[in-house]
Nucleic acid binder design. Structure first.
Length: 280
DNA sequence: CTATTCTCCTGAGAGC
DNA sequence: TGCTCTCAGGAGAATA
């Protein structure tokens, strides 16, 4: 559920509330949350103790907190992960997985994750980016993202355009929801073969990705309040602004045709049968 | 090498 | 009411 805009909302919250603070201790309440930290939960906690958070960074759906010494606390929210900034004496959340306390006695940073697809780890930085995510492409809001390189790589692939959008090594930050929204904006069917896309159409697709994510980010900002870093996918934006995703049988806002749901990669794909013509 | 499928997980909601 | 089934889906691992 959390895609680039939601993760960016979290990053901003962390930048505001966690930057410059020294970690007093870390507690791992569920080992699965640190499964990608190869040295284990105890080492994870020990590695964090006494470290100071320098800033909050993000690429695509990953976010990380540089800790100095060439290392960072790297996090992926998965499906249901939340980073909450809550008073240290707040009751333990039902799905609390990792808890960080700080030497200033201020609010905790808590990683809460119902479905445990998310994870956190301490990882070395290689340049600006944590080593474990070096294979991830820049996201479309980074200056490092090159539209021409994306277009070239996209047309070289032999797959469907939606699969390509979800391929984080090609473009990062796009998940199932914003993929459907971007395709609707670009009037592209999800199954369109990437090697048949024209350069102008790829331009429309990238514009669609950027527009929908920018718009979502503007509205995502509203779900953040002072002591609470919210990753609440269903708030505000989803009710009002989605044009395709989750709108099965509802009229397309451009042409009135009922939106169609197709099975796609063991999940769903929503599109307008009229605006987004199925390829032969 | 590339492209695709499998797997992990919990809770909400539907259907009987 | 309480059970079973389906669905939600990111991304690394496994497979074709």
């Amino acid at each position: 559920m959390p895609e680039l805009p939601e993760v960016e909302v979290v990053r901003r919250g962390l930048a505001e509330w966690i930057t410059g603070r020294e970690i007093a201790g870390a507690e791992v309440l569920h080992p699965r949350a640190v499964r990608r930290h190869t040295l284990g939960a105890e080492e994870f906690a020990a590695r964090l103790k006494g470290r100071t958070v320098e800033l909050a960074a993000r690429r695509g759906k990953y976010l990380w907190l540089p800790l100095g010494g060439g290392e960072a606390l790297l996090a992926h929210l998965g499906m249901s992960g939340q980073m909450l900034v809550v008073p240290a004496d707040s009751p333990v959340e039902r799905h609390l997985r990792v808890r960080l306390t700080f030497t200033d006695g201020g609010p905790d940073l808590r990683f809460v994750d119902q479905r445990t697809f998310g994870h956190v780890m301490v990882a070395p930085l290689s340049g600006q980016v944590p080593e474990p995510i070096a294979h991830i492409a820049p996201d479309p809001f980074e200056s490092a993202f090159d539209d021409e390189v994306f277009a070239r790589r996209l047309r070289t692939k032999r797959t469907e355009v939606k699969r390509a959008l979800l391929d984080q090594s090609l473009i990062s930050g796009v998940g199932n929801i914003y993929a459907d929204e971007a395709l609707w904006r670009a009037r592209l069917h999800w199954a369109r073969a990437t090697d048949t896309l024209t350069r102008p159409k790829i331009g429309e697709l990238l514009a669609g990705v950027r527009e929908v994510m920018s718009s979502a980010l503007e509205q995502g900002g509203t779900s953040f309040d002072s002591l609470y870093v919210n990753v609440n996918g269903e708030s505000g934006y989803f009710e009002r602004s989605l044009e395709a995703y989750g709108r099965r049988d509802l009229p397309c806002s451009r042409c009135g045709t009922p939106i169609r749901r197709d099975a796609f990669m063991n999940r769903s794909s929503y599109s307008c049968p009229t605006c987004q013509r199925k390829p032969r």
